[in-house]
């Protein structure tokens, strides 16, 4: 009987661990590249310099089409993020404008943004965004890393994947670009990054893969600005629980010593 149980359990494990190979459908997508981000793993932290560069790529390139409505400028200076100085954040924010309330005649007041304001959206509304992009809506990037499976690796692969040669058998609409990492391999976004497209403040050479890496890093942070706090609190909680577990283990052993 024990043997039957063991076999059933073993089969279950084998089945679930292999399910992708065992019953895989014929979907031919490329496996995501893994640039090994510093924030991975239980002790992972974001690379601050890379986050700063990532923000630079976002603000100079991506932000012309993609908004990040969940982020405020103040987030850029908070612990666990790019950690720009507060003066730098004020300077960044002041480059953008916002309509805020109305004056005594009822006319809207335009003022510079301040750190407590959200990032500036690139378009007034969804229709305007579509009209400027051949009918395709450039998604908001605040949560993009959480909204795609294997998020950061996917973003990195996608952004650096435009150079892949298109198979000759494939034909796609002229308004689309070939990118094997995109579902269906035909993406409405034209290649966004080219070598030395931005001039990094810290002097790093802006290759396509460097920019893809930095922007993927930045977007991973933006999707969850509290990640470092989460992991460090987790360590304390798990440590406490582990000590508690040992105490409870010996309590149970001692208590049940005479109970059989």
């Amino acid at each position: 009987m024990r043997l039957t149980q063991a076999i059933i359990i073993l089969l279950t494990i084998v089945f679930f661990s292999n399910n992708q190979n065992l019953l895989a459908s014929g979907d031919e997508t490329f496996k995501n590249l893994k640039p090994n981000f510093s924030f991975e793993g239980p002790f992972g932290k974001f690379d601050r310099e890379s986050l700063k560069r990532g923000y630079q790529v976002y603000s100079e390139v991506c932000s012309s089409c993609h908004g990040m409505k969940q982020l405020s400028f103040r987030n850029l200076s908070q612990p666990g993020g790019p950690e720009f100085s507060i003066n730098k954040v004020k300077e960044i924010a002041s480059e953008y404008f916002i309509l805020d309330g109305s004056d005594e005649y009822g006319d809207p007041i335009e003022r510079s943004r301040v750190p407590s304001d959200r990032f500036q959206p690139p378009f007034d509304n969804k229709d305007a965004a579509k009209a400027s992009n051949n009918g395709a809506y450039p998604p908001d990037l605040s949560l993009i890393v959480k909204a795609r499976s294997d998020g950061a690796n996917y973003i990195y692969s996608l952004l650096s994947g435009y150079e892949e040669p298109m198979p000759e058998s494939m034909h796609i609409d002229e308004s689309l670009s070939y990118n094997p990492w995109f579902s269906g391999s035909a993406i409405a976004m034209a290649q966004p990054l080219y070598d030395e497209m931005v001039e990094y403040d810290d002097g790093t050479i802006a290759s396509i893969s460097q920019m893809s890496y930095d922007v993927a890093n930045f977007l991973a942070w933006a999707a969850e600005p509290t990640m470092e706090e989460r992991k460090s609190l987790g360590l304390i909680v798990m440590g406490f629980l582990f000590i508690f577990l040992i105490l409870m283990f010996f309590s149970v052993r001692r208590l049940f010593k005479d109970v059989h």
Partner: peptide
């Protein structure tokens, strides 16, 4: 005690 151990 036993339940608490399992809960931990």
């Amino acid at each position: 005690v036993k339940d608490l151990f399992a809960y931990v």
